[in-house]
């Protein structure tokens, strides 16, 4: 049965010039996430460490990592990841 990623928690280093709201909006829009939240963990002169939580129905981890790279962020680690069996939850969506 198909299984998809529904929640990913990342440890991300980002340039301070990239605003937190711009970062979460860009990720939410371009990765197709249902919800993205980011908490600042550490502040440096030019960088900030952010704990980012991305939630959605079917997350593409590669696309998420690629988008973060493109935004100038460095993903230090994937701290938590959740997979969900979808077809069992919503059989009505299949024709």
């Amino acid at each position: 049965m198909p299984v998809s990623l529904t929640r990913v928690v990342l440890d991300v280093l980002k340039p301070r010039e990239l605003g937190l709201s711009e970062l979460v909006k860009a990720v939410c829009e371009e990765v197709g996430a249902g919800q993205v939240s980011a908490d600042i963990v550490e502040v440096d002169v030019k960088t900030e460490t952010v704990k980012m939580t991305v939630e959605g129905e079917d997350l593409d981890l590669d696309l998420l990592l690629e988008k973060l790279e493109e935004l100038g962020c460095a993903v230090r680690s994937i701290d938590s990841i959740t997979a969900t069996r979808i077809s069992a939850k919503r059989p009505a969506e299949e024709d």
């Binding site: 010039e17 860009a26 371009e30 990765v31 197709g32 129905e57 079917d58 077809s87 299949e94």
Partner: peptide, 27 residues
């Protein structure tokens, strides 16, 4: 089943430019 929108190259380029201008505006 995949509900996540996949991006076309044009759309990604457009949004990339938007971010470029937002970064420029913040500097």
């Amino acid at each position: 089943m995949n509900q996540a929108p996949r991006l076309t190259n044009a759309r990604r380029l457009g949004s990339g430019l938007g971010e470029v201008f937002r970064i420029l505006a913040s500097t």
